Computed example of a mutant assay.
Amino acid sequence: MRHPKELALIEREMMLLSRHQVLATTRTSGGADSQERLERSAYTLLSRIETEGPLTIGQLAEAFGLDTSTVNRQTAAMLRAGLVDRIPDPDGGVARKLRITDEGMRRLHHDREWSIQGLAKVVGDWTTEDLAEFADILERFNRDIEKLQGRPWPRA
Rank of each mutant, 00 (worst) to 15 (best):
E50P: 00
A24N: 04
R73H: 12
Q74P: 02
E129I: 02
R112Y: 09
E129G: 04
K97F: 00
T51Q: 14
Q149W: 07
G124P: 02
T44F: 06
E6V: 11
A32T: 10
W114V: 03
R106W: 05
G92I: 06
D67P: 00
R107P: 00
E50F: 05
A32W: 13
A24W: 05
M14C: 06
P154L: 07
W126L: 08
L131Q: 11
R106M: 08
P152I: 06
T70H: 07
S18C: 06
R73C: 03
A156M: 09
T127S: 15
S47M: 06
D125Q: 09
R37L: 11
L66F: 09
R155D: 04
G82W: 05
T70K: 07
E6W: 10
Q21K: 10
A63I: 04
P4I: 13
K121H: 10
I116W: 08
E146M: 10
T128W: 03
E52A: 14
G150I: 04
T26V: 11
G58E: 12
R86K: 15
E133K: 10
R86E: 07
G124D: 08
T28V: 14
L98M: 07
L38R: 00
E139I: 15
E52W: 03
L17N: 09
N142K: 07
Y43F: 15
P154D: 11
G124Y: 04
E6P: 03
K147P: 03
H109P: 00
A42Q: 07
G118A: 13
D130I: 02
M105Y: 05
S115A: 15
S69E: 08
E113F: 09
S115P: 02
R80K: 14
R99G: 01
K121P: 00
H20A: 14
G93R: 15
E13L: 13
G58W: 07
R12F: 14
R12W: 11
M78A: 09
R48S: 06
P88D: 14
S18Q: 09
S47N: 06
T56Q: 02
I49M: 04
D144R: 12
L131W: 09
R96I: 00
S29W: 02
S29D: 14
F141E: 12
D144F: 07
T70R: 07
K121S: 06
I10A: 15
H20T: 13
M78G: 01
T25Q: 11
S115T: 15
R155Y: 10
H3W: 06
